[in-house]
Design a protein around this nucleic acid. Sequence first.
DNA 1: CAAACGTGGTG
DNA 2: TCACCAAGTTT
Length: 297
Amino acid sequence: MADACIEWYDRNARDLPWRVPGTSAWAVLVSEVMLQQTPVVRVEPAWRSWLTRWPTPAALAADTPAEAIRMWGRLGYPRRAMRLHACAVALVERHGGEVPDDLDALLALPGIGTYTARAVATFAYGRRHPVVDTNVRRVVARAVNGLPDAGPTTTAADLVETAALLPADDARAARASIAFMELGALLCVARSPRCADCPLVARCAWRAAGAVPAQGPSRRPQGYAGTDRQVRGLMMAVLREAHGPVPRPRLDAVWPDEVQRARALAALVTDGLVEPVTDDATHFVLAGDRPPPATPV
DNA sequence: CAAACGTGGTG
DNA sequence: TCACCAAGTTT
């Protein structure tokens, strides 16, 4: 299975900048964090801008979280920008500004979880680890287990199952992992998979079973309009564009419901994305963007 | 462990 | 139009 996927990958892989040989581990790490729940097409330009401005962890660590949040733009989940900044600080403090290749050291970094740690160790350093994301889980669920889709989250069993598919050779195992992911992203997609072009079609357990579609509603609360998340997003957009401290009324203008506004703003402060400039909380800034105190003469 | 966490494109 | 989906992590 791995061989067929690698062969397909070699001919059909997208030409993505973070896959270019010689890409730094930091650049790979940044790409992986940006790609958490955000489509490739939106990540590409943001990734280029980010790495141009902050080519190393030390460069980012020397800047403010606010600048990271601004550079993050509209990628979504701005807490990822916060954590990426915190990650850069941790890399400087704990690893001399280098990205470690050790799984446990990677997992201990802010914003780096099971998937990202393995992705960095594998794609930046060629280590042999199962790399399991939503694409891989879908491919394995279908091709190996004959199911229409994978479960909602990655389990320990998923890691074991995927590890069993990896070639013995480290470099080839890494290639297999990226091939599984690419297959899930381009052909074995969630809706209307392109089985006709799939290198696994002849041995796919799901196809063999008749490619029965998933039953029942996928029941996930994906709604966005009217949620606190939307209100937070609107407020963050105002703060990103602002130069100086933003007066509370400008944040209030983004949403009619006062109760919800207050809740959203309080949550942003609690999360550390936003800070009140003064104790009276009449003005707000992005994290770390507090203006310097007036220098006494 | 379920829920929270942005944003925009698409069938 | 609107529900679904996109290289997850944290609490």
